[in-house]
Nucleic acid binder design. Sequence first.
DNA 1: CATGCGATCCGCT
DNA 2: GCGGATCGCATGC
Length: 206
Amino acid sequence: MADSSRVVPRSFFDRSVLDVAPGLLGKLLVVNLGGSTVTGRIVETEAYGADDDPASHAYQRRTHRNAVMFGPPGHLYMYFIYGMHWCANVVTGAEGDASAVLIRALEPVAGVPEMQARRTGRRDRDLTNGPGKLSAALGLTGAQNFSDLTGHPSVVQIRDDGTPPPDAPGVSSRVGISVAQDYLWRFYIAGNPWVSRARPSGGTDV
DNA sequence: CATGCGATCCGCT
DNA sequence: GCGGATCGCATGC
């Protein structure tokens, strides 16, 4: 990369998902697909645990779909939802710890024309303010499942340009789930206009 | 602005 | 066969 940011090392992801999820706020998600580079700043995340979290895809047991979550940290877990959307997750914790962070919203940083081309007809504010939207804008699908986020070069990277996570992130229950609503495992940069609009109960937003 | 619903398909029972 | 870590549009206030 020709900028001053650097790839976030695997050790960053080799921690509790409840540390990594808020820690990812402010980091950059960089995708190189189709001959172009698209970058977004992470402004909203959700933590998903293993057999301690009824809302997690890894709650029941290891299956073909959730296999990535059981692997080493720093890899990408892509899943298909509602028959039409892809969601992007970062695997956390040591190998065998099946936890991951769902990236729920990005602030566009570079490659906005590519994002607009992938989401024709959408207003700019709707390019990346949701997990399905940002995957579409960045071109992420199941083809990128298992990608190593710490390689360089790599198709998908998490980079750090020196922007620290907020001292006091917004915290709430997770969006769109019907169980474990007392888990306040959603984190976001309070007041950031790119955060998805949903505000579940228990939030501390302004 | 809030609520409601249809689209569309995969994973798991 | 059922339900889902969503989105976009339509409706109604």
